[in-house]
Design a protein around this nucleic acid. Structure first.
Lengths: 213, 213
DNA sequence: GAATTAATTGAACGTTTGTTTTATTATCTA
DNA sequence: TAGATAATAAAACAAACGTTCAATTAATTC
């Protein structure tokens, strides 16, 4: 028939986003049909087009939201301190918390890039590059000041990003390990990759409890 | 029409596998149609069914080949030495060489797991687990003997795998960095994660030139 | 050189796809 | 309470999907 009792545009859009992230994370973007998504939301497929002009724009919107949220989260907790070790510990903690809390949208943002048109892909990669630049800058500052000691700053930054993003592949919060536990352990590992001396290392990790909230 | 002049089953199958890996790596499994794949091979879609009973079996076959090749490559270069640092350096070098040389099939094996049926998924994950167990064992031996020093062996193993597999995301062999360069740098990083002392670290990396061939 | 087998084509099958259009009803505004 | 607008349903579109089948030709075997 037509408009259903209790229907509300804002609620429907939020429900679409949530269901889309879950379904795409589980089955992949190409494998999820608009009808399947609509059914999950409890709506007809045509209703989706009221909120997103087409399937690709829906994906793009989810990815942009994820990346902008990541950058915003970092800007919120970015330390004012110039100390590289402090900043690295904060970066690691924020990255892990954000990704663990949004496993599904992280999955989508990392795996479905190839379903974007060239222009949209470029836009997302631009956000990603801007974010990664933050880490590179921390490592460069640390290398310059002597706080860090690495063979290759750019390469280490890439390796670190891969390592800390990878946490979502295996980690599920349970009795054995909390998010705080995992964060602390990854902080230790990023410190090691950066070449921080062991005694210094422990001091900084310990000092950053606030980033493990 | 019918059989074409010069047609040969073995050659066709090899061509299908090669084209499939490339196309799936680029566009994703669900996004690649049998017709598109056939066109790339220069054949009609129906011809594919002579070699693979259906689309999923084709994917499964590609993944199994990749994982079995990885395990076989490791068994070939696995050091007889019981020294953990030597073994870790060898594992890192083999892993990076294998994945860099097969970027596309690595992509397929890492990204398309969700397109497998539960039974086939289990089979592939079994191979992956067996492979990762090798690394975990090296780390455990090193921790026991005192050669390594880690907070959490299992977690470190996962982080290492993520880090060294991630090399294919950004690395393209060029003038600046050769495969040998990258291997050496990643060996340094895995040593750091394992907690090998810096002086020892350099010795082992240097000693393993043969694994960077 | 005839018979057999291997390799492939071309057409067809029923589904499903993303998307558009039109009609209909709930809710909001004045 | 009348009118406007927002939200949805239902039906339809052509195109593309994975797969099957019968026909046909190349290569091999005897």
């Amino acid at each position: 028939m037509a408009r259903t009792s209790g229907s509300d545009g804002e609620k429907t859009e939020a429900a679409i986003r949530e269901a889309a992230v879950l379904l795409i994370a589980r089955h992949g973007f190409e494998a999820v049909s608009m009808r399947q998504l609509a059914a999950e939301v409890g709506v007809q497929a045509a209703a989706l087009y009221r909120y997103f002009p087409n399937k690709e724009e829906l994906l793009y919107s989810l990815m942009r939201e994820h990346m902008e949220g990541l950058i915003a989260a970092w800007e919120k907790v970015r330390p004012s301190s110039p100390d590289p070790a402090t900043r690295l510990a904060a970066f690691t903690a924020n990255h892990i918390r954000y990704h663990v809390e949004r496993r599904h949208s992280t999955h989508v943002s990392n795996m479905e890039l190839r379903s974007l048109s060239p222009e949209k892909l470029t836009a997302i990669l631009k956000l990603r590059t801007a974010y990664e630049k933050e880490l590179r800058q921390i490592l460069r500052d640390g290398a310059e000041s002597g706080a860090f000691d690495m063979e290759d700053t750019a390469l280490t930054a890439m390796a670190m990003i891969q390592m800390i993003t990878g946490v979502i592949v295996w980690f599920r919060p349970d009795e054995r390990l909390s998010v705080a536990d995992v964060t602390r352990k990854y902080q230790t590992m990023t410190m090691r990759l950066a070449g921080v001396e062991q005694t210094e290392e422990a001091r900084h990790v310990y000092a950053l409890d606030e980033f493990r909230a």
